[in-house]
């Protein structure tokens, strides 16, 4: 377990610089999100590795939004990997979190995890511990790009039609912060129908991922039907990058192409 992370958080807590550290705790063989307020609890700190590297990651930024809505004047530290740090930057821009109230505790991902994720940047700039890994070239989007158009339609129909509309992809998403969701808008999406109207249902969500999806992959992990959602959203990121020159979560002063909120 990372001594550096423990010591840094302990110091922040003892010196009263933060109200709490939002991270993961291991209890009775299970890993779960937890707000550490007492330095003694850090004994049970987990970094989200259970059976494999990064297989017990949770949407901590989503919980952080809830904490900061309840306690807007408090400062929190939060455990971030490369993707989570990209998420923080976008959430600052979307005004869901206040930059001056968040202290990122950065963790780099091992090669095994970076490969599985096909991660473009498997470490945060605020790197406290863990490796500063290399960019991994993606294969998943390229494989679909290489199909002819009819094969692509067959591929996605087969994938999307397994959808049981659990909304897990949206629920676990650390970047889905809307109070009202198009996916539950009865005038646009039929309720009580499974599979939902495809590809509309999944493309609606894909479009909403513009300037939001930071490629953490929690959606795909949460999908009971094993739909390759990450491939779809990686494609969205590719389009946004190629067409609009915007890379989600990589800068603090640029706004995403669909964002109308001014960035300071």
């Amino acid at each position: 377990m990372s001594k550096k992370i423990k010591e840094t958080v302990r110091t922040l807590l003892v010196e009263g610089k933060i109200r709490g550290f939002l991270g993961l705790i291991e209890r009775d063989g299970h890993v779960m999100p937890h707000l550490f307020g007492d330095p003694q609890e850090l004994e049970h700190l987990s970094l989200g590795d259970h059976g494999r590297a990064g297989d017990a990651r949770y949407p901590l930024n989503q919980i952080l939004i809830q904490l900061m809505r309840a306690y807007p004047e408090e400062t929190f530290a939060v455990l971030v990997r490369g993707c989570d740090e990209r998420g923080l930057r976008e959430l600052f821009k979307w005004q869901q979190l206040r930059e001056e109230k968040v202290i990122p505790i950065g963790l780099g991902c091992p090669e095994e995890l970076a490969r599985a994720c096909e991660c473009e940047k498997p470490f945060p700039d605020n790197l406290l511990d863990g490796p500063k890994g290399e960019k991994v070239e993606g294969q998943k989007v390229a494989r679909v790009n290489a199909m002819d158009i009819d094969a692509r339609l067959r591929f996605w129909k087969a994938e999307f039609d397994r959808c049981i509309k659990c909304l897990g992809c949206r629920n676990i998403c650390p970047m889905c912060f809307c109070k009202e969701c198009t996916l539950e808008e009865a005038n646009l999406i039929d309720s009580g129908e499974i599979p939902p109207a495809n590809p509309t249902f999944h493309l609606v969500r894909a479009i909403h991922m513009v300037g939001r999806c930071i490629d953490c992959g929690l959606c795909e992990e949460a999908c009971p039907a094993d739909i390759p959602l990450r491939t779809l959203y990686k494609k969205v990121a590719e389009i946004v990058s190629e067409e609009f020159g915007y890379k989600t979560g990589y800068t603090v002063d640029e706004k995403s192409p669909f964002n109308i909120i001014e960035v300071k």
Binding site: L153, A206, I260
Partner: peptide
Amino acid sequence: VMANKRMTLLQKLLEFSGLH
């Protein structure tokens, strides 16, 4: 301007989903 961006995105996404 926004509509135009959305159209560009949607066309690319449709193509990726197997629709012209």
